[in-house]
Design a protein around this nucleic acid. Structure first.
Lengths: 153, 153
DNA sequence: AGCGTATAATTTGTATACAATCTATATGGA
DNA sequence: TCCATATAGATTGTATACAAATTATACGCT
């Protein structure tokens, strides 16, 4: 049994990643790769920069992920003819089928999470969680601001 | 705004890690290192194996973390004279002071998370979260069982 | 004592997370 | 046109997360 919110949040994220890793291992995909593929499926032709915004992750990490996904023929990359810095990302036939299958399993997994909870409790949980995330975002912003001020002294 | 539970859980864990990374950077500690130090503080003299159980993490990762913590004089390692496979872990004076300071800041951070929530909502949130974590543990167990059965075919 | 097995840690290899730097391209103003 | 600046990606270096193999030690059994 866990006591603090922070520990619960960490533990839960760890468990979700482990569960999805099990689901994904038969497709030889990692969870991070799956999230990138999902984003590309939702917005075909988007750029790496746009993936970063959707996933709130790091460009160095994404660069490696895209490299590996291309190597395993899960995505195509096409340079934009009007702006050669940009690339447009698309799924392949291979990945399209896999992603649809895994997304279904993830939804099933998500539904099982709330087993034993009443609808009312689920609603309160979700709203409270959103409030907590907003508070976290605010706190992070404060910390970054503090840090920048320290840096400028 | 995020829609699914899984996305909320991932996002929240990511944000917490980022916040704590900001807090810890002035002590030149990572969040993982801080968690290990907290565990050692709570159970002085425990072994690496025991840290693994408390933190539910991996021995390969922990091995590296302990190595770096020893190098930066944050911990002492002492071989057990009765079982030379075992080592006993202790904080140093240096880390003891740091951990106490950071723990306070983490508690402050934790309190700010629930800003805007009523006590009733917090209670329901916490109970629901515990239920969700239990469901996740169950699901992971099932997946591992399935995987082992596939493996034995 | 000798041997097989179990266990604690370390090591190795791959895939992230993230900060910092570099490269190539695009854009706006002199 | 030329140059400073901005932006998209890639690269580098450090620290995880985790699976698999290795090392060293302990324990049980004959």
């Amino acid at each position: 049994m866990i006591e603090s919110f922070c520990d619960m949040i960490n533990k839960s994220a760890l468990l979700h990643k482990r569960i999805m890793t099990r689901v994904l291992q038969k497709y030889e995909l990692t969870y991070a790769q799956f999230q990138v593929l999902k984003t590309i499926q939702d917005h075909p032709g988007l750029s790496a920069k746009e993936v970063l915004i959707y996933l709130d992750t790091d460009k160095a990490t994404l660069s490696g992920i895209l490299h590996r996904l291309e190597k395993s023929v899960m995505i195509h990359r096409k340079i934009d003819p009007n702006d050669r810095r940009l690339m447009h990302l698309h799924l392949t036939h291979k990945s399209e089928a896999i992603i649809n299958a895994v997304k279904e399993q993830e939804e099933t997994c998500e539904k099982k999470l709330t087993k034993g909870l009443k609808n009312r409790e689920i609603r309160i949980f979700q709203d409270a969680f959103q409030t907590i995330i907003n508070n976290q975002n605010e706190q992070l912003k404060e910390r970054i601001k503090e840090w920048e001020e320290t840096f400028n002294e």
